[in-house]
């Protein structure tokens, strides 16, 4: 009998060795209440598709609560709304896209953003040159009183680079809006006036 008792603990590792079941599908209720806070937002999304089986690519996707409005430049087509991409435009002459995005805070600061975009263009710029570039944007106030800092990367991107960028940085309350148009130098030159017109039309 005593030996049987001694053998019993041998079963213990087997019992302990059983991992907890990890269910493939879990269903639960979640309550999440987020307080209102000053944030930027996109225009109200278009109404849901009327068909019974809406195509999700054209389905409005929510982002934020307040509004930023603009006027679409002539010849440009505004595409479907996407989350956090406040607006997507297709330019008339080249068919390239121009996008407005908004991020919380300053997204690491002005020079960090310029550096990141230069990296995406696969262009390396000396720190001094980058600081000089960051300090010399074309600036104006939009029709809605928003400060716009315009950076034409043609000034820092080598002449033989395949792509360039035209960007606007628009500081908002607690967030930053970015307007970006990518393309070849020629495409950007052709659309620069429309790009500036879009920036000037921004209203909170």
């Amino acid at each position: 009998m005593k030996r049987c008792l001694v053998v019993l603990p041998l079963l213990l590792p087997g019992l302990l060795g059983c991992d907890r079941p990890n269910p493939a599908v879990r269903r639960y209720q979640e309550i999440a209440v987020t307080p209102e806070r000053p944030v930027m937002s996109m225009p109200a999304p278009p109404p849901p598709a009327a068909s019974g089986n809406p195509d999700m690519t054209s389905t409005p996707v929510q982002t934020s609560e307040t509004r930023l409005t603009w006027t679409t430049p002539p010849g440009w087509t505004e595409g479907a709304a996407r989350p956090m991409r406040l607006a997507t435009f297709v330019t008339g002459s080249s068919g390239r896209e121009c996008v407005i995005t908004v991020f919380p805070g300053d997204v690491g600061g002005l020079e960090a953003n310029l550096q990141r975009w230069l990296g995406q263009l696969q262009v390396t710029v000396a720190p001094d040159a980058l600081s000089k570039f960051a300090r010399a944007p074309e600036t104006f106030q939009s029709d809605g009183g928003l400060p716009c800092l315009i950076y034409d990367f043609a000034g820092v991107v080598p002449a033989d680079a395949a792509e360039s960028l035209l960007a606007a940085v628009v500081p908002l309350e607690g967030r930053t809006a970015f307007v970006k148009l990518g393309g070849t130098r020629e495409q950007i030159v052709a659309e620069k006036e429309n790009f500036l017109a879009l920036c000037r039309s921004l209203k909170p």
Partner: peptide, 17 residues
Amino acid sequence: AFQSVSPLTNAPLNDLG
């Protein structure tokens, strides 16, 4: 995660672009 300088027309749907 990476954003494209020149937004792609076939980019997947994403809330942050």
